[in-house]
Nucleic acid binder design. Structure first.
Lengths: 210, 210
DNA sequence: TTGAAAGCGGTACCAA
DNA sequence: TTGGTACCGCTTTCAA
């Protein structure tokens, strides 16, 4: 399974590596048409595919972002992954998805590995169990954004739903239909999961007004 | 955001790059305890994280497998991704998930990019729209396995459900409950999606026996 | 027991 | 308009 390299292409086309590299990066400005054709042909004949890793090592960008989700089985998660994937694909980026299972240890492992793999940034549904690590990345100026959960201890950009508003809207709906009182049922709040707390708080605020 | 490299560690520890590399790869056999300690300390102090890309470039393995799913919104897909992730994590591998949206063009794009990213192998829920490309990968001896759908034109390993058996079991259940006849409703079969065809075929076989 | 140096497959500067 | 070469960060001989 020997792979075709840029040197093979260069040799086959009878030009230098540098010239092939120019071609690959679409810098045709000073390139003779004949040269361009030769390279094009060589690439086609050899079925050459550039080694992105080698390239990334040099240019210091992998065009890849890591996504660490809390639980990949939740449909909400899936929808977000899908959305991220969509925008990435438009800008020719790629994502590496990791499932932390709401386990801080796993989360830490994944953060470390993504960092080692030189991803350009990480999107996390944070467990909240790795404050020190989050901080360190922040200190490194490493691009990181949180999803769905807010960690008050550190000022990392987070994209969140307006959960209070959601509760308010739900209650309003009841009111509009003429109901007099509403209750709320929630899963565990012991872990201080942002959305849950906010929904409850929204519920409380709105409920008083009934 | 200057990253710490193996050279930094070597300098800090007062040894050579090679020695640090030995350490990183746990080849302590001939290493003086003192040397080991120095390196350990340097790594800790500098918060060094090896650049996996540089390593992969040399060792020609990324410990990463690509997963191209037909539709990431299907729960079946999610469960499989999760399962793959689980076994990967046990052997210290990682996955890059791509969503082909059942679109052969997207599938082709992703196959090409994963190949370029030097993944060690690819798992595909094949659209069936890229026979030539599948064949080429096969010719390269590139590790590839299909999931859930079988492409008769080429002999690529595929993991499938026993859908005929599933239909048979469903019908048997009806029989056991004393019903006399059963029908089947299916989504579109115009694309020759393996599971659907097999379920119908299983249904037909079993139904005759009622 | 450790280090020097070549090489992995690209990019980019500078000279030709 | 093209090519030589150093370099990205790591591994791996081979010599010291």
């Amino acid at each position: 399974m020997k792979r075709v390299t840029i040197s093979d292409v260069a040799k086959h086309a009878g030009v230098s590596k540098s010239t092939v590299s120019q071609f690959l990066n679409k810098r045709y400005d000073y390139m003779a048409l004949e040269t361009k054709d030769k390279i094009e042909k060589a690439i086609e004949e050899l079925k050459y595919h550039p080694n992105m890793m080698a390239r990334s090592l040099k240019v210091k960008s992998t065009k890849t972002v890591g996504v660490i989700v809390a639980n990949i089985l939740h449909e909400f998660t899936t929808q977000i992954i899908r959305a991220i994937e969509d925008v990435c694909q438009q800008v020719d980026f790629h994502i590496i998805v990791c499932n932390a299972d709401d386990d801080p240890m796993k989360e830490e492992k994944y953060i470390t590995m993504l960092y080692g793999k030189q991803v350009d940034g990480i999107i996390i549904f944070p467990t909240g169990g790795n404050i020190e690590l989050y901080k360190r990345l922040q200190d490194y100026n490493f691009p990181i954004v949180f999803m769905d959960r807010f960690i008050p201890e550190i000022g990392i950009d987070s994209v969140l739903l307006d959960n209070e508003m959601a509760s308010a809207m739900a209650i309003e709906e009841f009111v509009n239909r003429g109901y007099q009182s509403a209750g709320i049922i929630t899963t565990s709040v012991i872990k201080n999961v942002t959305p849950r707390l906010e929904r409850i708080s929204g519920y409380k605020k709105s409920n008083c007004e009934i």
